[in-house]
Structure formats: structure tokens, C-alpha cells
Amino acid sequence: MTLASSARTRRRLTIRRRGMLPGFNLSLAIVTFYLSALVLIPIAVLTWRASAMPAAELWAAVSGPRARAAFALSLGAAGTAALVNALFGFIVAWVLVRYEFPGRSLLDTLVDLPFALPTAVAGIALTAIWAESGWVGRHLSAAGIQVAYTPIGVTVALIFVGLPFVVRTVEPVLRELDPVLEEAAAVLGASRLRTFLQVILPATAPALGTGFSLAFARALGEYGSVVFISGNMPLRTEIVPLLIVTRLEQFDYAGAIGIAAVMLLVSFVLLLLGNLLQAQRRRRHEGA
């Protein structure tokens, strides 16, 4: 405990002394400029425009039955998709890190595909497969389950876009995990389940949490793939980004900005929670 904290003080000191790592000023300036131009200023403009709106108007834009239904669907589907991704993304990461098998690098590339594929293409492909006339949808609809044009379809599309986030955040942590820890646990007589629950999971949980919140935030804003599979029925399968597009289509900039500002707030809180969670777990992990 004392060792760790003194190490931390020392680290702080070196930063203050400067010059140890060259180029700090220059790189900080570049980072500040870059982030401002690309992220900070556009978002500040959005926030500023939203704050210029009368509160009653802002409230009306986000509190109507349609907006409420859309928020419920978007949050619910994005949350469910992120949970599914956390579970299966972990398994995919595990397989990629721990096992050698033919086709592993192909599988590895496949995971990144949702990053690269235009989302509209993904949406059309998913709809083709899951619609009643589609490959998978045909068999499901025989069993009375409809996927395309229902909230389930929305969730399927969001699982697709969110998958790489969990895999790519958990993977490096799993790779860094020293097998000695597991061996030690086994030598000390822990069962496999206990090893997993008390050794592997605590070490990867922060990364899993971050992956979850990234996938969640990404899914919340997804438009391109969802509009094809959702069916866009008011009150039933209308997602929040569609509502924004709808408002813009009617030249209702104020309404669009109101909804966008709420979306921004939710995403920000989510990402912040993810980061806090990770920082806290890391601290506890280091301290132990």
C-alpha cells in the first residue's frame, strides 16, 4: 500500500519537473487543437443552441409520447445489445487470445467488419436475412417469432454494430493476464469456476465495463443500419436518431437540437460512468 502510493507521488513529481519526456508542450497543443476542432467545438455549439431554447420548448420536444417511446426503445435496445455483446464479446475475445486454431486470423478480421462496413449495407443485409421471407426469418416466423420490423430487429442491428467494441477492449487485457495467476489459483486448490470468478473476471471486469459502455453509446446513436430493419412505426419501432431526422425533415431545427442534446447528455453520462468504473476498479486492483 505504502509502496504503491509513494510510487504514485514520484510519478506526479516527474511530470511537474517537465523535460523528462520531450515534446510535451507541442503534443499537448496539438491534442488540444485537434480535439477542439473535431469534438469540443461542434458539441459546444450544440449545447449552446439547446441552452438558447426556452426550457418549455425543450421539454416539449423530448417529453411527447412519441419521444418518450423512442427513448424507451433506444435505451432498452441499446442496453440489451450491449449486454449481449458484453457476454459474447468476452467469449470471442477469450477464444481469440487463448486458443490457436486454423482460421483464427480470419475470425480476428471478421470481428472488425462492423467497423468498416457501411451501416446501411449492414442494415439491408440483416433485414434480408431476418425478414419473414429471409433465410433465418423464415424459420423463426414458422415458430411465430418475428424479428425484422420489431424491437428485436432493432436490437439485432445494434448487437452487430457494437460487437467490436467489447472484443477489442477486453482482448488486450486478457492477453496481458499472467497465466501464472491461474496456475497459482489451481495449485492452491481453486476450482475452475472459482478461478474464473475470482481471478480472471475481476482482472477483466473494468475492460468489460468500458467495452459495454462504448457499445452502449455507439448503439444509442446508430441510425443507418436500424432504419432498414426497424420498420419505423411511431410509438413501436421508432428510434431516437430517426426522430431527429424526422424533425430535421420538417425544418424543425429546434426540436431536433432538443432531442440531440438529451442524447448527448445520456451518452456522455454513460461514457463517464464507464471511465469512472474502470478507473475505480484499476485503483482497487493496484491497491490490493
Partner: peptide, 17 residues
């Protein structure tokens, strides 16, 4: 049952789906 966002979307839904 489905409100596509554009005319082409509806055409696809009807002809291909």
C-alpha cells in the same frame, strides 16, 4: 406494417422482402 424512411426503401421492402 412498416414505414420505410424513403420511397426506395418501400420499393425494396415490397419487391425484395
Amino acid at each position: 406494417p412498416v414505414l420505410d424512411s424513403g420511397a426506395r426503401g418501400s420499393t425494396t421492402t415490397f419487391a425484395q422482402r
